[in-house]
């Protein structure tokens, strides 16, 4: 009975949502020139209307080749600062909730293959994560996936070594990187009057050393997200006091 009623309600919701589809443009037929993204793609928020060409245009208002990165870390950077704060709050909440529990650590023999392959695998995982967040302004990726990959490396470390404990320096790294993010914003505020303004020269689009503060902030975000998620995993793994 309960299942039948739930299915009925879910079906009603699906029908209502399908009706609402009439209000938005058809799939694949969006007129981009009417959307705000148009000026993000052409990098013309400040008003210059040149055509952008890979490895030729230079000194644009934002020099990163990956448009998604330029939105996340430059145009909507304040939004990203808020989202990183939400992530920090969630990690803090996990720590606080799990603090007073009677915890039992799950003792198990680590898998022999995992334990042996660990030495070859881990440096590659960390290297790949670092590669992803350093090249965030050129290739798909950036600080958020890079940090997650590093946290996955920490998870492998936990699974393969029963004595491993994450040091408290991870928390210091996390808050330090958050401070670096805010400091970049404050320097922009002092130099040009706008919080998180890109104050470094942006260079030629598509080069590794380009886009001003975008790669620097993405590296900070990468370390912060990596440390945060590793802390989260270690909170779940930790042994209780009692």
């Amino acid at each position: 009975m309960r299942r039948f009623l739930s299915a009925l309600i879910a079906l009603g919701l699906i029908i209502i949502l399908l009706e609402f589809l009439n209000l938005i443009p058809d799939f694949g037929n969006v007129d981009l020139s009417k959307r705000v993204s148009n000026s993000f793609i052409n990098k013309s928020v400040d008003g210059n209307n040149e055509t952008i060409e890979f490895k030729k245009s230079k000194d644009l208002e934002d020099g990163s080749a990956n448009v998604v990165t330029s939105i996340v870390v430059n145009y909507r950077s304040f939004d990203t600062l808020g989202e990183v704060t939400v992530l920090f709050t969630a990690a803090l909440g996990v720590g606080l909730i799990l603090k007073g529990l009677r915890r039992k650590r799950f003792y198990r023999e680590p898998n022999f293959i995992l334990k042996t392959a660990n030495g070859i695998l881990l440096p590659l995982i960390f290297l790949f994560g670092a590669y992803i967040f350093i090249h965030g302004h050129l290739t798909p990726g950036g600080g958020f996936p890079g940090g997650t990959i590093i946290a996955a490396g920490i998870l492998v470390l936990y699974l393969s070594n029963e004595k491993f404990e994450l040091s408290h320096r991870a928390k210091i790294l996390e808050s330090g990187m958050g401070t670096v993010y805010v400091l970049f914003g404050l320097v922009g505020l002092i130099l040009s009057g706008i919080f998180l303004r890109n104050f470094l020269p942006t260079g030629v689009i598509g080069e590794l050393f380009s886009a001003g503060i975008v790669p620097l902030i993405y590296v900070a975000i990468g370390f912060k997200v990596g440390a945060e998620l590793s802390n989260l995993i270690s909170e779940f793994q930790k042994e209780g006091q009692q």
Binding site: T69, P140, P145, T148, A151, F236
Partner: peptide
């Protein structure tokens, strides 16, 4: 960009967090 994030998060970390909580 979204695909690479979802691949590392959805397939790796979410499952790990849920299994750790289940063990707890």
């Amino acid at each position: 960009d979204v695909a690479i994030t979802e691949a590392s998060v959805g397939a790796g970390l979410v499952t790990a967090v849920l299994i750790l909580a289940l063990r707890k």
